[in-house]
Write a protein that binds this DNA or RNA. Structure first.
Length: 175
DNA sequence: GGTGCGATTGCA
DNA sequence: GCAATCGCACCA
């Protein structure tokens, strides 16, 4: 089977994948319709030692998808009302992931800013959790639309409890 | 079995 | 500034 993104794409450290996802297309198939968007902002959750990561607490019912194969979807509910979409990285058994924080819809170019708004725009909810982006026909990665000239790095959003990890530049975005 | 809170958002 | 809203991690 021919793939635009090779399976090994996700078998790398989360900060590498997070950068590499910028400028790439993500497609959501809803019946015969396809919603397309370009990823413009991501965050990396590096592993069990990363205090900002859910995986910091180890293998739990919630975090189990993070321990899955590269390309696994980790979709969880935050604040009781918003879903966040993550793409699991590294080899099976190592919990790391990339959070998709913003996209631009195609062809309109409308910016969807914020992980909760991204999942709403792409109609992604809990039924996607623990699925794999290489096998679930509802979601797939498309081609790279451009290579960012400059990638801005900042600390991750909403993780003030993470100690030194709160300050690490693991949020990546296109200007 | 009880409790506290979060990888957020929208509105006052 | 803060309410909404609920799954679940954690403690007992």
């Amino acid at each position: 089977m021919r793939r635009i993104i090779h399976k090994k794409f996700f078998n790398r450290d989360a900060h590498i994948v997070a950068r590499d996802l910028l400028g790439r297309e993500i497609r959501r198939r809803i019946g015969s319709r396809v919603v397309r968007a370009v990823i413009t902002e991501t965050e990396a959750y590096m592993g069990p030692h990363d205090k900002a990561s859910h995986a910091h607490r180890g293998l739990t019912k919630r975090t189990a998808p993070m321990f899955g194969h590269p390309g696994t979807l980790y979709v969880y509910l935050v604040y009781g009302m918003h879903y966040c979409l993550n793409l699991v990285t590294r080899e099976k058994g190592y919990p790391a992931a990339v959070l998709v924080r913003a996209v631009r819809l195609l062809p309109s170019g409308i910016l969807i800013n914020g992980p909760g708004r991204v999942t709403r725009a792409l109609a992604i909810a809990k039924s996607f959790n623990n699925k794999n982006i290489f096998s679930d026909k509802r979601l797939m990665l498309g081609p790279r639309h451009f290579t960012p000239k400059q990638i801005r790095k900042t600390p991750r959003i909403g993780v003030p409890y993470a100690g030194a990890w709160a300050h690490k530049p693991l949020r990546f975005l296109i200007e």
